[in-house]
Every structure is written in C-alpha cells, then in structure tokens.
Design a protein around this nucleic acid. Structure first.
Length: 552
RNA sequence: GUGCCCGUAGCUCAAUUGGAUAGAGUAUUAGACUCCGGAUCUAAAGGUUGUGGGUUCAAAUCCCACCGGGCACGCCA
C-alpha cells in the first residue's frame, strides 16, 4: 500500500501521543493532519491536542506543549509552534520536499498508486435505453462515471466500465410504433404517435432513411413482425448515435450488457426460482409480487405484470444477480436523483437473494436543469425539448464539457446556461489549468532557444524558499486527493485540486524568472519544479479525460 | 402527506467533511514587467452561510423545528 504524506505525519504524531500518554487501544484517533489556511501557520497542522483534551482531561495547549519536543526531533521537521486554541503547526525541512520532488520527477504519479485494495469493481453508468439521443443530463453522469472509474484505477482497483440497456420491453414497443407513425406520414398515411411515445426529430430522420431504402411496403401494415422490424431499425440507428456521442466525449465501455440476454441466458428465470425458494413472492390480481416489505421499509412491488411481461424491477434484480455471479467484489451504479426511490427495493432484493451487504452500491447525482433566455427549461426525452449532449460537445469541445461537469459537486443541482455554453466557449476554468501546461512547455522551449542545457533531477537543493516548499507540499497532496475521491465519490475535488496547482504555478511564474542564463543552477532547479508541476497536472488531467496541451 | 438532495457574494460554484479572518470565477472598479505566452498576476468592493433554537474548546458543516427549491412515491424505466 502506498503511504501518503498525511499518513506518515499522522502515524508519527500518534506514536508520540502513545509515548507520552497512557492511551488505550479504544481511544479514538479522530484527529487530523490539516492544511492550514495561511502560510504563516506552517506547511501542516494538527488538531490532536484539542481532540484529546476531553479524554485526557488536560488543556489543549498543555497537551500540545508535551508534543513539541518529540516533533522537533523528527528528521524532516524544521519547526513547531502552538497557536490559537491548541493547534500544533509545523514546517517541514526543504530537504524533505526536495527528496519528494525527485520521486515525482522520476514518475511516482505516473503509475498505479495502490491506495485502495486491489479488488475487482464494476461501475455501471449512462445505461440509457436506445430511445433517443443522450441529453446533457446523461452527460453529467457519463463524466462522473468515467472519471470515478479512472480514479479508482489509479488507486489500484481493477475497474470494469459497463453500460446496460433495455432492448426489449414496453418502451421499445412505443419507440417502434412512433417510428412507424413517422414512416407512414412519409407514405401519406396519418396516424397518432401513441401515448407515451417519442416525438423527437431524430425519428423523422430515421424514418426518412428507412423510407428511402424500403419504399412504402409497410404502409398501413402493422403486426408483430413489422413491430420487430421497426424496433430493430430504431434501436440500431439510435444506438449508433449514442456511441458516436460517447466517442466524441471519449468514454469507452468495457461491456455493453443487454436486457434481452438476461432472458436468453435464463437468469431471470433463475432469480425467480431463488426468490420463490425463499418465499419472497406472491400472486395478486394476476400479477407476481415481490415482498419488499419483508426486507426493507418499502411497499411490495410487481415483478411480472398481469399481461405476463416482466417489469424493469425484475430484470434489474436479475442483472445485479448476474453481476454478483461474475465475481465483482463490489459494484457501483451511478443513477440520477430521480431514480433514488429504486434503491431501497433493490437493497431488499439483494437481501432476498443472499447477496452480502456492501456489494451493491448506488452513487446518486443531482439533476441538471437548463436555463435559456432567463427561463428554466425542463428536459424530457419523450417531449423532445432537450438539448443533446452531442450538440453541446460539438459546440464547446469535450475538454470544456468534461471539466465543467466534473467541477460541480454531484450532490448539487447543476444549472446549465445554454446560451452561455453554446455561444462563447463557456466560461470554463479548464483553460486556466491547461494554460499552466502551455506555459511550462514554452519555458522549456525558451530555455532551449537561449542555449540553456536542462538537467532533470539536478540542483533540487536550490528549491528552498518558502514559495517553493509550499508549492511542493501541494504536489504531495495528489495521492491524498485520489483516495479522498475513492471514499467520497466527489470528483470535483480533483478539479479543485488542479485549479489550485495551476493557481500556485501562475502566481510563482509572475514573480520569478525561470530561465536566467546568469544563474544556471537556480534556473535548472526552477525548471525541475516546473517539470514536477507538469507531471502532476498531466496525471490529473488524464484522470479527468481532459487534454494536456503543449500549446493553446 | 412521506422519503432523499439542496439553500453560501448580483450570478455560477468552492470551503481540506467539525477547525484558525467563509474563498474562487464572473460582473464592477483601480493597477502590473521594453524581460520566459496578458487565456496571466495584484488589489478594491461585494456575506447575519434561508430563519430560529440546540450540541462543544470550535458549526456553512452535526441534531431539532420551520421557510423555500429540486426529485421520488406506477402492473413506467
């Protein structure tokens, strides 16, 4: 396991506390190593004295006082002070930061960091049915799922990205009929798009192509086989559209899983058998019900409708049963907040099947709303008043789209200003971060032009000013951010972090000359610092799926 | 009515998940190297963190009650 800097510091302080006080194993170690709000407080601080004040029945500042000597004796500590209510603030020696910079330069962050157990985990996301183009709501989910997957991989987890879709079912029947209506209109026959059907323009396009190819042979004709033909046609064309959009935003799935295969492979049947064996089923009103209420605080749900068709709930249970059989130690489903009601009953089903707690996990994200002409527009695929993800990506580019979706906390609703997004190049800090890389690249170009020979890993001892040690401290937090995201699923921490690195760099850049031929050693040291920034920012952008450009 | 999420500067969002003077961008104003990319930097102004209680050394953060917004409560997915 990779040990982060904060863990090293925490262990050291924990050790000191045990040496100085008679602490039992049960004593909580809820104290933290923190990043102080201001430089004058040090590189790091800890609240350990305040946290233990109650247990030890001593004043925080007194406890802090007993730790100072031990801390100062640590080889990498430069100075220690006590401030405020009992904060212990400390500076690390420049030599320590220099050693760590060397590791970054040698590619420490480029490989897997082994921050989490090396399990096999699945992320399921997007999973939109092929009934229409992806919306910008799907965009948020796609970006969230893809970045989480990448971050977990970086942390040493074996990740499978999976897309599940429904290619049978009631909605597909409605889709088929909707296409058929559009097609008949081209043949000169008027029919109504069915209740709950699809009104989007994209079906008109598909109908046109189909009509051009096959003429009017299906005019006024409708039976099961024709329904299947139109369903297949709509599904295939729409799914190609969806895959094209995913490609444009650079999201690649390892597995596309279809609902139909759950029936074909007998998994639905097997699940029904199992549930029946556990007496979790009953019949009522010609339908088959699952006793949700036996397992969770929720109402019982229908698994097989009175018309004999399986509900989405049943196939979803079968699907997750199948995931379990595939041997993942854990799966994460990423759902929009509108699906949260589904969680409890799924948990109930997992219990009924004897699948261990903790296997099935849901990551919810809040909705995306659109603002256009000062108005909030509600999105609905069926009503066809949505802005497509494809449109957005074409207009502003995948980097801006990915960064923009990643930077907002998944638990916050996201208000999306269409006019702003589509007109200018969206007000997006991604350029700020990318610009730092472009600047670093041109620094090295400039050095070459001046005939300066850059030597990587040399002269790091010249990185000893306060500006530089604080910058390196920030670089050392990269693994911390990765792990935090694994535990909180808050990918916006990564954009915050990278923005902070870019800020630190831009700031330093303005106040310091990097390439000064009269001071070759100092220049070389600073170029090494720039290189360490580049490597760290590049790794971060890679996780975000955002381009790390040399020029802009 | 019940459950989940949210409410922070004019606007869009942060806040190291209980820490020190609540910060960025944007919009407004005033500035910056004859020099490595001005897509940058520095500063001013902008706040009773929806309201009222509570918990404690410490609350935007946790608890309770209200107010406001979103979502869900189907034999839809």
């Amino acid at each position: 396991m990779y040990t982060t800097l904060l863990e090293v510091l925490k262990d050291a302080i924990s050790h000191l506390m045990r040496a100085n006080y008679n602490l039992s194993e049960e004593d909580p170690e809820a104290f933290r190593i923190e990043i102080p709000p201001e430089r004058k407080f040090g590189h790091f601080s800890t609240n350990v004295a305040m946290v233990y004040a109650k247990v030890l029945k001593k004043a925080p500042r007194l406890i802090a006082q007993t730790l100072v000597g031990g801390l100062e004796a640590l080889p990498y500590i430069a100075s220690v002070s006590i401030e405020g209510a009992g904060f212990i603030n400390f500076f690390l020696k420049p030599s320590y930061f220099q050693e760590r910079t060397l590791k970054i330069l040698q590619g420490e962050y480029a490989s897997s960091l082994s921050l989490m157990p090396a399990e096999s985990i699945q992320f399921e996301f997007v999973s939109a049915n092929p009934t229409g183009p992806l919306t910008i709501g799907h965009g948020r989910q796609a970006v969230l799922g893809d970045i989480l997957s990448s971050v977990f991989q970086k942390a040493g987890v074996a990740v499978t990205r999976e897309y599940y879709f429904n290619d049978a079912g009631k909605q597909m029947k409605l889709l088929s009929r909707s296409l058929w209506v559009r097609y008949n209109r081209l043949c000169g026959s008027e029919y109504e798009i069915p209740e709950g059907g699809y009104h989007g323009e994209y079906l008109v396009d598909i109908a046109e192509r189909f009509h051009n190819e096959s003429g009017a042979v299906y005019k006024d004709q409708w039976d099961d086989s024709i329904e299947a033909i139109f369903m297949e046609r709509a599904k295939n064309e729409i799914f190609q559209m969806i895959k094209g959009t995913l490609e444009a935003i650079q999201i690649h799935f390892d597995v596309y899983y279809t609902e139909a295969s759950l029936f074909r492979d007998g998994i639905v049947e097997e699940v029904l058998e199992q549930l029946k064996g556990r007496e979790a089923l009953y019949e009522k009103d010609q339908a088959l019900w699952f006793k949700t209420s036996d397992f969770e605080e929720d109402q019982d749900k229908v698994l097989i409708r009175s018309d004999g068709m399986a509900t989405y709930f049943l196939t979803d249970i079968a699907y997750h049963y199948e995931k379990y059989r595939r041997g993942f130690s854990k799966v994460y489903d990423i759902w929009g907040a509108d699906h949260h009601g589904h969680i409890t009953r799924m948990n109930a089903a997992m219990k009924a099947l004897g699948i261990p707690e903790g296997f099935f996990n849901v990551i919810l994200h809040q909705m995306v709303s659109l603002r256009q002409n000062e108005e909030i527009v509600k999105m609905s695929k069926r009503a066809a008043n949505f802005v497509t993800l494809d449109e957005l990506v074409r207009n502003v580019g995948k980097d801006a789209v990915r960064y923009f979706f990643a930077m907002v906390d998944k638990d916050s609703q996201l208000e999306f200003n269409i006019d702003l997004a589509l007109s200018r190049s969206m007000d997006n800090p991604v350029y700020y971060v990318q610009y730092a890389l472009a600047r670093i690249h041109s620094l090295f170009e400039n050095a070459r032009n001046k005939g300066f020979t850059y030597t990587e890993n040399q002269n790091l001892d010249r990185l000893d000013s306060e500006d530089e040690t604080f910058m390196i401290r920030d670089l050392l937090l990269f693994p911390e951010v990765i792990r935090d995201i694994c535990t909180t699923q808050q990918i916006h921490r990564l954009t915050n972090y990278l923005y902070g690195l870019a800020y630190a760099f831009h700031n330093y850049y303005t106040g310091h000359v990097f390439v000064d031929p009269d001071r070759p050693e100092l220049s070389n040291a600073r170029l090494n610092l720039a290189s360490a920034f580049r490597k760290t920012i590049e790794e971060g952008l890679k996780l975000l799926g955002v381009t790390a450009p040399e020029r802009m």
